[in-house]
């Protein structure tokens, strides 16, 4: 039996957002990487994955913010940010702008977290934290700052 897919109608705002996310206007290479799914499909799939892992986007974003706050004190050097975890924050001049149509201006700051025992590491920008917290968006597959929910949770919790 062939399942007939339901094609949701996109509003002009959705189309504009999709265009901005796939363009390089705000970040080199854009936010969608080589992901051919729509933005809402990416968000829905990651929300499902997150729920399966037993977390909410708010919990994840809050933990990311906590780690960034501790790591900032290292002034660009590695500091302990949790049990068996080191983190550091690098800052660059300027701001990162949220692609969603609202006032979202974040410091150009990148947090890197490393699990000492395994060497596994993950990084995020302040914009990543905002995108997860406010929009449930972990970015498209292949994007420079795509965060895999499973890896993120394994690393920071």
């Amino acid at each position: 039996m062939t399942q007939v897919g339901i094609v949701m109608k996109e509003s002009p705002e959705d189309r504009k957002l999709e265009e901005v996310l796939r363009s390089s206007r705000l970040a080199a290479g854009g936010f969608m990487g080589h992901d051919n799914r729509s933005v809402s499909e990416v968000i829905d799939a990651d929300a499902t994955e997150l729920s399966r892992l037993g977390f909410t986007k708010e919990q994840v974003a809050e933990r990311m913010r906590q780690i960034t706050k501790v790591a900032i004190s290292g002034l660009g050097t590695w500091v302990q940010v949790g049990d068996g975890m080191e983190g550091k924050v690098d800052e660059a001049k300027g701001w990162l702008i949220c692609p969603w149509p609202h006032k979202g201006k974040l410091a150009k700051r990148i947090t890197v977290v490393k699990v000492i025992e395994t060497g596994e590491s993950i990084r995020w920008s302040d914009l990543n934290t905002h995108l997860i917290s406010e929009h449930g968006f972990f970015e498209g597959k292949g994007s420079d700052f795509r965060i895999e929910p499973r890896k993120l949770i394994r690393t920071i919790f």
């Binding site: 080199a28 660059a92 990148i110 990084r123």
Partner: peptide
């Protein structure tokens, strides 16, 4: 210039 991951100018 320091490379900013995902930075438009530094990547260039």
């Amino acid at each position: 210039i320091r490379l900013v991951p995902g930075g438009i100018c530094t990547t260039y």
